[in-house]
Design a protein around this nucleic acid. Structure first.
Lengths: 231, 231, 231, 231
DNA sequence: TATGAATGAGTTTTCATTCAT
DNA sequence: AATGAATGAAAACTCATTCAT
């Protein structure tokens, strides 16, 4: 396991190719090593928290040794931050594919909520890492450059939906975009992040697949009822 | 905090206490000692998490020594569990004072949501500890006997409100009580628990007093709109 | 359990009887308390060793508290020494009942070996405590006054047996009494003291009742063959 | 002891070693480190028992730090078990050199007893560790894989001696091999293991070199008399 | 680039003993 | 005579990090 990849090409020259081929068969592949470490670290940090995670535990499940972890990421905190960076980056990619501005306000709002729901429902690691960050007062995510920028986009999307909805006489005009985002996040996040205590308290795991569809519909419904203009 | 005991006995020793608290000189007061430890531990665990908290740090801010902490609570985990027990017990006491069944359905629902909101808004330690428990898969709270029983009460309250609302033709009849509780919890919990990342992302601390009233009204509104029967 | 004896006679005078009645119903009975502590301590020390035994553990199984243990025995070591003293004292009482000097040499020897065998076979606590003492270089037993005296008796008994046996032409004349005692002790002690490792090694617990009779006969036989004069 | 490694490499560093051992300057030598720890631990455990031994005390007398002790052996108990494993393994090596099956029954029996005697007489650490194990109910040695297997060999040796002796009309035919092994062990073990209490009781250290030859002869004699066929 | 051994400072826990009532 | 709370010193163990190869 620890001895590199399965099908190691016998390097008979002793001189490693200096061309960065994206080839998994190479003996020394820094990018591959880093990716591997990050992957394992994501799981460990997400499962155990920043303080709870053990550098040794991460290293053990890696294809490399502990030393490499320090070589590439400097420290436990550095690695944690790299994990945050990666995880937040992953969302951005997905969000691009939502062409909400092309949908009418109600359908757009529904699509946004459903996307948010689905994302949290699937990316438990993300949810856990956000939770962990909050326990640490968000001090690590503050240093992640890509973080602040990306969040504005959602607000813009919501603002666009709201103003188009208002213009169409469908939405009320006293809803703040950031507040609405908070509401949507709350509804999608909590059922995943707090599923354990909730499950223990009520004997029902709120993130169970069985409840998935019902909750999804419920949340969409709640949001639409909230923004809808009453006559 | 440090409220001291109820019945302060008159100083008959002649040794004037240099501390303003009139009864701090009692040397043997197990209940006081335990309470003191629990109080400090609540802060430390809530601030640092289970793994992040340091037994030494707790002991230092206590009126006693580290040894007493083990004397009364057995281990770090035992102390953590005692903190959970206390914190969950504290809510129960408050919940009793809400006489929701005496209010009409809409006002009762409003009262319940407002209570939930206010409780989370004020008891940040509670919110943090619940978050921390979820990182640990709720495995400690599972061992707290008083835990499971107490949560059913809220569900009964909600069920009562819903059925009375349905009977009065005010509420829709397809809402599940536990789901509704989850919704209310989500809205009240998230803005407190995740305020740091949210604040970093949007430059606005959602738990800031300024936003308090607005969020409170918004959440009440959202819940009432959700349960209201549409004609 | 910890609250003294079951049927505490209500002391209405408040003045404890100063007459040492051997009555278990008294509220405060120092002798009874001491005996109780010693009994529990014997078990604990014998089971765990001097360093392995825990003062708390002893106190817990007692009818009194830890404080009393120090009150009467001064320290953990003091208690341990008291245990040794008691245990060695117990044998003396038994030995008096053997009237070996009245038996003929062979029968006397047989009786002595059988007594030694039976004693070790039954008094496992004794065997363990002796073992424990040897780990501590016998430094505690050295301080037990009654110890040295009592051992000479056995040697005298053996010397008497040997000389009578030699005189009768039954025993060889080149056997040292102390050496013979060592031999008998070895055979009787080892199968009890080392029964655990022996059992693990050979899948046969040498102190098992089933083997008892066979070993007893074997040891008697071995000793008699050893002292017997060959022609 | 400290034999050092087989192939000491020439000092190319220019830093003259101030220690007489020619290869002590190698900084990274896991085997050497482990051996060193084991050696010191053997002494400490044998002298103080499992509970009495101090990890710090072991570490201090080592060439490394306490940390390495945990690095290689995991825990105090793990180290203790490794010591047991080593100590029991050491005997096996020696036993191989006895070619008892090549000797005639009487001489073979004598050789076996003398070997057993000499081994216990010299390896006091071994005797003490076995004693300590028995105080712990042999629960650690039970986990030593190599333990159970190796003990059978002695029994086979004895069985072979007995059956050849019986066939030659020299030995009686009613002796059980395991019982005989127990007898030999008893005689050889006790005088070493219990020498302190014995010495205190009779003012004569049974393991003293002066008595060595006499006891050796006595034990051989006793065993031979026991197995010999009487006519 | 990669590795496994090594480490110091800290962290939890235990233990025999004493104090105040 | 008896009790339960309290304690300091020491013990076992852990952890992120660095060194030598």
């Amino acid at each position: 396991m620890k001895k590199g990849s399965k099908a190691a090409e016998p390097d008979t020259t002793g001189i490693a190719s200096s061309v960065p081929r994206p080839d998994a068969r190479r003996k020394y592949d820094p990018e591959q090593t880093k990716r591997n470490i990050l992957e394992v670290a994501t799981q460990e940090f997400s499962a155990m928290g920043l303080t709870g995670a053990r550098v040794d535990a991460i290293a053990e499940r890696t294809n490399t040794t502990k030393r490499m972890l320090y070589y590439y990421f400097g420290s436990k905190e550095g690695l944690y931050q790299a994990v945050l960076e990666k995880v937040y980056g992953d969302i951005r990619a997905l969000e691009q594919d939502l062409h909400i501005s092309e949908l009418d306000p109600v359908e757009g709002m529904r699509a946004l909520v459903e996307f948010t729901f689905d994302y949290h429902d699937r990316q438990r690691d993300f949810v856990r890492l956000v939770t962990i960050e909050n326990i640490h007062g968000a001090k690590y995510v503050e240093q992640v450059k890509s973080f602040k920028g990306r969040n504005v986009t959602v607000i813009h999307t919501i603002e666009d939906l709201l103003s188009r909805g208002i213009a169409a006489g469908l939405f009320r005009d006293d809803v703040d975009a950031i507040d609405l985002h908070l509401m949507i996040s709350s509804l999608c996040f909590h059922r995943v992040g707090n599923r354990h205590t909730f499950g223990t308290a009520f004997g029902r795991d709120p993130s169970h697949p069985r409840l998935r569809a019902r909750h999804r519909a419920m949340i969409v419904d709640a949001v639409l009822r909230f923004v809808r203009k009453e006559d």
